[in-house]
Design a protein around this nucleic acid. Sequence first.
DNA 1: CCTGCCGCCTGCGCGC
DNA 2: TGCGCGCAGGCGGCAG
Length: 283
Amino acid sequence: MPELPEVETVRSGLQRHISGRTIGSVEILHPRVVRRHLAGADDFAAALRGRQVGDIRRRGKYLWLPVGEDAVVAHLGMSGQLLITDPGRPLTPHVRARFTFADGGPDLRFVDQRTFGHLSFALGGAELPAQIAHIAPDPLEPAFDAQRFMIRLAARRTGIKRALLDQSLISGVGNIYADESLWRARLHWARATELLRRADLTRLLAAIREVFAEAIIAGGTSFDSLYVHVTGQSGYFERSLAVYGRAGQPCPRCGAPVRRDKFMNRSSFSCPACQPRPRRGRW
DNA sequence: CCTGCCGCCTGCGCGC
DNA sequence: TGCGCGCAGGCGGCAG
């Protein structure tokens, strides 16, 4: 579920609440949460005990918590949350992992209803964990190379939305912000990547950065209780969405009713007037 | 290599 | 009420 703005909101919350603190115990309450850590849950816990957490990092939708030269990598999947909680509070049903701290202060709980999210350990991964080496820079980080992005995108033979959702090309964009950015750039989701002009891509990239920046200020999009800040508050970007989840409601730009299409086994929302269907589309 | 499909999970809202 | 179905913010693996 969470895309870049939601993960960034979580990152800054973790920075505020756990950076600089020393990990006490690590409890794995559901083995699936560490399925990518092949050495197992006990090894994962042992590797982290007693270690001090550095500045929390993020690339796209991935987070990592540096511990010395190493790191804990976290991905929230569709329904994951990282919550800072009073350690005395009882565990709720979907808590999959819990970190306590040596100072006895608030703990960190990884809560995940659908268990698509996961945690793993990256030996020597404080700068960039090996597990996420295939994830492209996101458009808000200095390492993002717009030139390279446009060249690689133009070499693809697919639709623009599928390309935006490919985290090895550009990271951080998911279903909500893909639809919102395409709407802002007035591009239909099925536009063929190889037929897009440079000006289209420049406009699209600007739209992505703009919508990300606005959503981060709002603390992300919370449709329900599944996405919240580390302290349990909701983000309020939902009220600023132009098309996502708004089928049948008027386009904020031209008033035409927002259309909903099925694509990649999920929904795509767009304006039928501002984002006309391409003649030679791809999906 | 590139493209696109599938499975992984739980819970909710809806129509019957 | 109850049940089955479709749907939900994502990703990695794998076939072609």
